[in-house]
Design a protein around this nucleic acid. Structure first.
Lengths: 343, 343
DNA sequence: CTCTAAATAGAAATCGATTACTTTTTTAGA
DNA sequence: TCTAAAAAAGTAATCGATTTCTATTTAGAG
């Protein structure tokens, strides 16, 4: 409706050139007399001037916008990451495009394309694509890329890794330390590096202790729905408890799955942890709200988001673009879903 | 680094004018000979042309971008809303700026300002500001605004309301129907219309049944942290159970709070629902993953997000901008946290 | 074989803000 | 008082894509 006010309109009103108006309103260090400055500022205020960033960004070739591409924002883990990203972005004057890739490689590529076209300064991505053509293009276009959660071995991409393998190892060791020998690992499809990592760590620990690994994998492809994870946990618990030698402890590849495991155990009249112990992975907030509070391996989601964004901002500023490669360490959050079988 | 390719570059390579290139690459219906078309398309492909949307958007004065302003994405309720918004946006070719206002009026205003400057086509907002000056400007700037969750009585703003009052009413009625007479209402600070609404509905139902309302309010101002809600629930449960006549059922103003209530009850050796019944509000996914599965009032979060975005897109398209005003209805999700005291 | 209309292509203006460049004014030092 | 330099203001080009306007070509009608 009300056609928006431009620097030219203000220039006309103030009887000055648009250059001068721009200099004042964009806080340029080009000198403008105090007299004109106040006049322009006052007029801008009066006419409710709102700068059109498209013009500015086009000219300056810089947008103060970043993108985050994650599987799904309803997954508590990723929403914590996104929250961390957004927090730092806000402090630094950036705005964030949030993209849910739904674990669909095509969608992921589409979003990368959109981010390029919208001229974002950087992208934080938890990628599941194996074909990295689009990503390479992104880097060629001089967009800073930071891979989180999922490792992405690619020239020019900084990484914030998480040591999944050590996490899996620590969890299994923790359970062993509590006297468990028959420890099952319940996992969704082992098709992503992160998941394989956890599993590998678990197997390491079992082998090291001379125990037999017991991995139950849910083979159908995942969706993006938390309830699906929950149901998967139930199904896997069912299978494990129906096995010849059911485990005394079940380690789940993520907390939501662990919720499902606990649910199923209870449905069978088994108490957690007195009858069967359960351990999760991720350390989402709700883990401490359920009963029993879930013992789990903490993956610093929120901090990861903050760090990723911080790195991105730094890269944006620096003339030379250093590559980072951070590996975050897992930590066992000891709560009450694991029974100590010792003495 | 590699300076990006423009229509002009392609024009030079193809020995045509940039006008022709633009016509081809933007799928204009202006006729271009098949010969040139294929040549241009081929060259664009070869040089990895990526259109700079800033230029396009500046010229066309239209961005295909919308913003969503919510208190916090880590709140499962809002992340479901955001997910719904993003889903429809994606289908319609829009990209979404996600903004966490942290319930801070100043931050909210800042984000509104940024959205204006970035020339978004629409904003979906769960506003907590009482001062609506910035919002009014937004509307004047011809940006479509849809208020969700929190009512926002303002000229020119479409609303997706939720009948909180009826929700509160239904919950209390449900508990009454199960034979409860001493029903407590645990709530965070009653400073927002939505919360007042639920409380009012609860009081209505209690009065209607000739029962005495028992509202316990947590007065300190809320943060944005789910754990805070949980702790608040614990504290309120503590107070209620320490009262002279403790309730047989506690109705909580949201699910996270209900989790805290359940936790505290259990800590006191009370069983839910056999000793005390608990009911939540919102219907977030994890409610069905805890034990006992939480009986609650469903507020259609995801659907609300989808609907909001759908409305926004429609408004963007339509020449005349109709105002909508939808009120979504609550529904009791009957699960297992409420005991039937009848017979 | 004309003549009008449609098809096709290009030149240049445009969107809004910034900035390189030019011009004018002021200031300071000699 | 004069001059060089700094300050202040303006003109016009620029960012990349689109589009209006103009020019040319082609096609079809008579």
């Amino acid at each position: 409706m009300s056609k928006s006010v431009t620097v030219h309109d203000i220039a006309k009103l103030a009887n000055v050139s648009s250059a001068t108006v721009s200099r004042v309103l964009s806080n340029s260090d080009y000198p403008v007399s105090e007299k004109l400055r106040t006049r322009i500022l006052q007029i801008a205020e009066e006419v409710n001037y709102v700068p059109n960033l498209l013009g500015k960004q086009l000219k300056k070739n810089s947008t103060m916008t970043i993108g985050i591409i994650i599987p799904s924002i309803i997954n508590p883990f990723y929403s914590a990451v996104a929250f961390g990203v957004e927090e730092v972005a806000r402090q630094e004057g950036f705005t964030v495009f949030t993209c849910n890739s739904l674990q669909d490689p095509e969608l992921e590529d589409e979003y990368i394309q959109t981010m390029m076209e919208k001229q974002v300064k950087g992208v934080i991505i938890s990628s599941i694509t194996t074909n990295k053509e689009k990503l390479k293009r992104l880097i060629k276009m001089n967009v800073n890329v930071i891979a989180i959660d999922q490792k992405l071995d690619e020239e020019g991409i900084s990484q914030i890794e998480f040591d999944h393998r050590k996490g899996g190892f620590l969890a299994a060791k923790y359970l062993q330390g509590k006297g468990h020998t028959r420890i099952g690992y319940a996992t969704t499809k082992l098709n992503r590096p992160s998941r394989k990592g956890i599993c590998l760590g678990y197997v390491d620990a079992m082998n090291e202790a001379g125990l037999e690994p017991f991995v139950e994998e849910y083979r159908s492809d995942e969706t993006v729905n938390p309830i699906f994870e929950f149901e998967t946990g139930r199904e896997l618990a069912r299978r494990m408890m129906d096995a010849e030698r059911p485990p005394t402890a079940i380690f789940a590849c993520n907390d939501l799955l662990a919720f499902g495991v606990i649910h199923e155990l209870r449905a069978r009249g088994l108490q957690v942890p007195s009858d069967v112990s359960v351990m999760g992975f991720d350390g989402i907030d709700v883990g401490q709200m359920i009963h029993p509070p879930l013992t789990t391996v903490k993956q610093p989601d929120y901090e990861m988001g903050k760090m990723a964004c911080r790195m991105l901002v730094d890269m944006t500023r620096g003339e030379d673009k250093p590559m980072f490669n951070v590996t975050l360490q897992p930590k066992v959050l000891e709560r009450q879903s694991v029974r100590d079988l010792n003495g």
